[in-house]
Design a protein around this nucleic acid. Sequence first.
DNA 1: TATAACCCAACAACGTGTTGTGCTATAATG
DNA 2: CATTATAGCACAACACGTTGTTGGGTTATA
Lengths: 203, 203
Amino acid sequence: MARKQPEVTAETRQNIIDAYWQLIMSDTVNKITVKMIAERAGYNRGTFYSYFLDIEDLQSQIEDELLPSEESFEKLRKATISKNSKEILDVFMQIEDSVGIKLSFLLGPSGSLSFQCKFKESLKSLIIKYLPLDLNVDDKTIDYKTEMLCGLFYETINYWYRSGNKVFKNEEMISLMMDTIFYGVVGYKFHKENWEELHGNNK
Amino acid sequence: MARKQPEVTAETRQNIIDAYWQLIMSDTVNKITVKMIAERAGYNRGTFYSYFLDIEDLQSQIEDELLPSEESFEKLRKATISKNSKEILDVFMQIEDSVGIKLSFLLGPSGSLSFQCKFKESLKSLIIKYLPLDLNVDDKTIDYKTEMLCGLFYETINYWYRSGNKVFKNEEMISLMMDTIFYGVVGYKFHKENWEELHGNNK
DNA sequence: TATAACCCAACAACGTGTTGTGCTATAATG
DNA sequence: CATTATAGCACAACACGTTGTTGGGTTATA
């Protein structure tokens, strides 16, 4: 538990956080200790406990700052209404240098499962809140559809970060995602030859 | 390191593994130690090290046994060719009681990130190997499309396990997934009103 | 009676979280 | 201006738990 509560500084706190980021993002380290964080930050080990309960506490604090915000999706809602596609991009591709690097790490294989779950949950609740539903759709399937829509957003964001923004331009990426959402994963021909014959062209 | 290599039994090994499963699946425990595993299995702590290098070694061994197998997708390939939809279901929904429970746990929020990555990778390589591509599609986008197809498979499997197979029947689930893959995430009406006007109905 | 499978006790090494004490630079006070 | 005071941190030590290893002992089976 934090020992002396008032005797803390925002600067020292950030120094400890930065040291933690350096350690988890250097793939040479797998098991991180409080001692390592304190040494990297240039503080005594006891100082760590003046700022955080333990490593898990530190981790959850820095993760919460990286979740998709309410404001960003408010921008999306206005963008879909005002038909400004440029603003749609900005929401998901606001890779503000250091922030984008941290995000792509946490979302990756060496990242944090808890963060990925929280990220998906935030995405889902924001999608439900801001993206209007077609009321003609079966209530039974809408939950599944929402899950898939969220999944496509999530995977696209992940792909965007993994590809290092090199493969597609912003406009191409968002266009490709929208096409996939609205028209399906075209490109695999087995459905035309088999699937429609299986169930009949009932769609 | 395992001390006495020949002096081991498959039965004892399985008992230790079962004890580990009991511990990680009981949400009352968050930090698992070798001592806890040994006590739960009914063995001395030293016996654990005769069978596994450490907990991480145990974990990776049991995870590899749960990855989607080559045979299961061979069944899928034959199914798509022979147009037997029943066999397609069996591939992804062969929830053999205990196996399904373990799978859904590892794929969940309290599961294993390393397993989820290995699971996705296996899924991806199998999809690339067995699902035929439409050669008319742009090479640049096919990587992204494959990623999204894999994501939809993954999310559907996850949804299937999370819902406890209660919401949809097997046939309904696979039909819903196929529809989503081929025709997109219908149900959200914002695309008809906004998206097509944004980019023109160029698809 | 020999061996396989396991138990038991002990070990050094390391990480954890806490505590008491002392240092030093900056700020407040008479 | 000299002096106290305090905020921020260093340092050392503590009890405790986990780790991986080792040497020796036990028991049932063949």
